Simulated assay, not measured.
Amino acid sequence: MTRLISIGILSAFFFSSTFILNRAMSLQEGDWVWTASLRYAYMLLMICLWLLLTRQGGVLSGALRIFRRHWLFWTTAGSIGFGVFYALITYSASFAPGWVVATTWQATILATPVVLCLFGRRVPARGMLFSALIFAGIVLVTLEQAGAAPLGKILLGTLPVLGAAFAYPFGNQLVWEARHGKSPRIPVIHDPVMENSVGRLLLMVLGSLPFWVVLVLATAPPPPTAGQLLKTALVAVFAGVIATSLFLHARHHATTSYELAAVDSTQSMEVIFSLLGEIIFLHGALPGAAGMAGVALAMAGLILYVRAQSSTAG
């Protein structure tokens, strides 16, 4: 369990680059539609190149085979878990600083148990309590940092993120259910590629492509700028490939609903990493007493997750 938590925190470190770089692009250059869609175009190219360079062509061909066989499932999972999720996250960056988006994104900590319940999974009440503790810490950070921003702008920058907070765990849980084959409404996919984190990531990216094509055609944004092309490539590497692979790896090795919720809760660390990134790169202010108290609550929730699981195992 401790190892899964550590991997989850490491993924949060790389995920935080999304909020910082997306905010930088929204202030300086480019339409949000390109910021969102280009990330997954880059990811597709990078994953395929990586598999070929590392002589894992079997994973690539296997993923294409699985996608053709279950194209409707993967289009649904990819469009929700990657498409809807990231489109809403990127849109919100046009109205709120990265730390506000990152903070609001922590609603996924409470959204995950709801999603698990929708799939018929039982989440222990103790896990819900620790999730609420983490979220309370995030609320303190939000109250302190958002005090100086106009209310209307904060709402435009936060409400879309609430939708993303449900879309991301829902899409990921669809894949988890397909791998474990316990839902009568979801296809059972037992294949060696499903045991490979990069293979699963590729399948989700492929599934999201129809969503991005429809979004670009529907919005007809102006051509992307040179700076946007570079920054979205960085987001694709740090958040899209490295962070997502680490996160899916941790989720893949979670064997219970409690462990799944605990892994998802590690994403609360994105707030801390995003705040540090804003301070270093965007000259943001250090949090005050309330912000530090919020960080302490979030850390306490994570520690209690680990301790509770250890005592249960013992």
Results as ranks from 00 to 15, higher is better:
F170V: 04
F170C: 01
N172Q: 12
N172W: 08
Q173G: 03
E177H: 12
A178C: 12
A178P: 10
R179L: 05
H180V: 03
G181M: 11
G181H: 05
S183F: 13
P184D: 04
P187I: 01
V188C: 09
I189Q: 04
H190C: 06
D191P: 03
V193E: 04
V193Y: 03
E195N: 15
G199H: 11
R200Q: 09
L201T: 04
L201M: 09
L203D: 02
L203Q: 00
S208Q: 02
L209H: 03
L209Y: 00
L209K: 00
P210H: 12
V213C: 08
V213T: 09
V214F: 14
L217M: 10
A220C: 11
P222F: 14
P222Q: 10
P222H: 07
P224S: 09
P224L: 12
T225E: 13
A226L: 13
G227V: 08
Q228E: 06
L229D: 00
K231T: 15
L234Y: 09
L234I: 14
V235D: 02
V235Y: 06
A236M: 11
V237F: 15
F238C: 07
A239M: 03
G240R: 03
V241R: 01
I242E: 04
I242N: 08
A243P: 11
T244N: 13
S245N: 14
F247P: 01
L248E: 01
H249S: 13
A250G: 09
A250D: 00
A250M: 11
T256V: 14
